[in-house]
Design a protein around this nucleic acid. Structure first.
Lengths: 251, 251
DNA sequence: CCCAAACTGTTTATGCCCTACACGAATTGG
DNA sequence: CCAATTCGTGTAGGGCATAAACAGTTTGGG
């Protein structure tokens, strides 16, 4: 029987504790927590094994007694963040749409609380930790009273996952760009006016002239972001609604 | 007047050529092209300044005469890939939906031809190169005959961009995971059966029992991927259709 | 015509990073 | 009580981006 990928045993608490040898002075939980603290405060850039060990008052190599890899540490961090911010329990009296909407906005909150999660390179397998699977399960639970076939349910949930992930990530990066505006670059609208040619990019030029790209405030405000996400989610939920009613009629 | 971000002058061919000094033995085009070749063949991991220079028969530091940063090189690569795979010209006799669908699937092709683009960290500003702006323009051109207001047009295009980006990226990573299956891991369905508990994750367990996660072939086939993308895009396009007809009636 | 200025490519060096390895110290089963 | 096992650390190796100094090449101005 083949083994599970590294880290999975840890996530599900199936790591057998040592019988011999000195007592461990650290724990994976401590390591992952401090790593999460660093990443949440300063991002993934400054997160190095050295830095984590330093914050724990230990040497860098000591971490490798608990974690095979830096990548494994990142995977653990990702799943633990999903545990720290658990999905809401759907209320089966409410119908699928309000429940799924609550779920979706809770996911947005997760990515806003732990922005670095969006920059963790995906591991060798699809999500398999308890945190991420709990999110998956709660989304699927919203469809209990519908007649959607199994494949469609997953398809819909995956659609929401990728869309929310992409949207939050993009807004993050746009915000980062706004911070770069302090570095001396002109605002986006200005830059576009400098390079966009009316002949080669006519439709874009029209929008630039309308001032659509001229951000009034500093970068993208929380309200603007909310609107952008809500816009996309509404469109997607409308599509799901059509799908659900199709399979309801077929019943 | 503040300067443009680094690399923009290069992208738009506004780099002034040197008058003094020896003739350059390299060109940015060469550098970017070989970098693209490496990344397309082996991914961003093995792409280092040393490696690029090596493939050109030069020393690593020579590249810094043409490029400020590795990050700038990555941004250039991204835009050039969008030029090498240009967006289709919309046919104004066809209506917005067929045109936008062609555009969307062409974008999917772009990301499949240059998978590494999805892993390039976004730069200090939103896209400003001619390649990416051309894609933006061609998408906007699809709405010429509609009455959508400007903000909605951008919103829709952004929605498509993030969705396609996320979807292709996820399928890439799943495929990578399938490659990891050769490393000795059991298939995803098996692993889920090992960890998913019927009491704690009932809805997920139901789907696991149905065998939804048991991939018949090796990883995700092209056909499966096509279906997945088509599924999401259809839902989104239905949502756009609703939106367009709303503003048509309001006219 | 000639020299100084400007530019190119290379060599060298610095400072990070992850991590393989070997070691001494601590703990415990037989 | 010894041998096996485990823990934490120090050292070192290899890779990376890139700063700085330098030698060689081209050209504009006197």
């Amino acid at each position: 029987m083949p083994d599970l990928p590294p880290g999975v045993d840890v996530l599900w608490g199936r790591r057998e504790q040592a019988k011999r040898g000195p007592r461990p002075n650290l724990s994976i939980e401590q390591i992952v927590d401090t790593a999460i603290d660093i990443a949440s405060a300063e991002g993934l850039g400054p997160l190095s094994m050295n830095r984590v060990a330093e914050n724990l008052g230990k040497s860098a190599m000591s971490l490798y007694r608990y974690v095979r890899n830096k990548d494994e540490l990142l995977q653990l961090m990702t799943d633990v963040s999903a545990v720290k911010n658990a999905p809401p329990e759907p209320d089966q009296d409410l119908g699928w749409r309000p429940n799924l909407e609550r779920w979706a906005y809770a996911l947005v909150d997760l990515y806003r609380r732990f922005p670095w999660v969006l920059h963790v390179p995906l591991g060798p397998t699809p999500p398999i930790g308890p945190g991420q699977l709990a999110w998956l399960d709660r989304a699927l639970a919203c469809f209990r009273r519908t007649h959607l076939p199994a494949e469609v349910r997953i398809g819909v949930v995956m659609l929401l996952l990728t869309f929310i992930r992409g949207q939050v990530r993009m807004s993050q990066e746009i915000n980062l760009g706004a911070a770069g505006a302090a570095a001396g670059y002109p605002p986006y609208g200005e830059m576009l006016r400098m390079v966009v040619d009316k002949d080669q990019l006519p439709d874009l030029a029209a929008l630039v002239d309308e001032g659509v790209f001229d951000d009034p405030g500093e970068g993208m405000s929380d309200r603007e972001f909310e609107l952008e996400v809500r816009f996309g989610l509404t469109m997607i939920f409308d599509g799901i609604e059509r799908l659900v009613s199709q399979f309801e009629e077929a019943q």
